[in-house]
Amino acid sequence: MTKRSKKRHSLHRWHRYLGLFAGLFTLWITLSGIVLNHSAELAFDQQYASSNWALTDDSIEASSIIAYKSANQWISQLNDRIYMDTQEITVNNSPLIGAANFQQMQVVATTDSLWLFNNSGQLIEQIDWSLMLPANPTRLGITQGKRLAMQVSNDWYSTDETMLSWQPISQQQVRIVQPTQPPQIITQQLLDAYNGKSTTYEQLLLNLHTGRIFGEYGAYLTDLIALILATLAISGFTIWLRRWQ
């Protein structure tokens, strides 16, 4: 066998083995990709995978709950979800910094927004802090006059019942609202509510498509398959070119 034909034989062999190896994964990636393309039509973005095996990194534990007792209701945050008792009232990534009942409303403060809900969990208004305060606040408090107050750096500001304007006040007038651990029964109901709604079928498919369902290194496996497919395209073209010549 000449040196040239040895080289050609070797390229053929590598092309064949890489093709066989990548073939199985290609089926997995293409099928999951096709379904993902139509996930909205199939409503996969609104249906939740409830089996334990589907709940990968997104499932959560009791220690992750941030909760405030506001009048007779619990306002809690689990990851990006905010609950009134066990009812999900909004989705927000910014940390919950306080909640209080004010003027017959549940006032929920996250680091980026002020959320006003009625007592049945219906949103009245969401207001970006940058529209009201000089910077994002860190704590919520109640003044001696039962007004709402927010701490920005070392300063405190309070507002009237319209919550349209905020005025500087002295810290002595403020009782800071502190987070509290909710009762076990609320904690368990929150965890059930969250874990049952943490992974949509679309997310599950996406995890499957990108390889992340296999954990931290799954994405590298998919990268490897992508590189093998790119290599196959090049080796296939080279083989075809040599035959054509």
Binding site: N118, Q122, I124, E125, I127, L131, L164
Partner: peptide
Amino acid sequence: HSYRGLRVR
């Protein structure tokens, strides 16, 4: 879809 909120600033 329904507007989420009871007042608009």
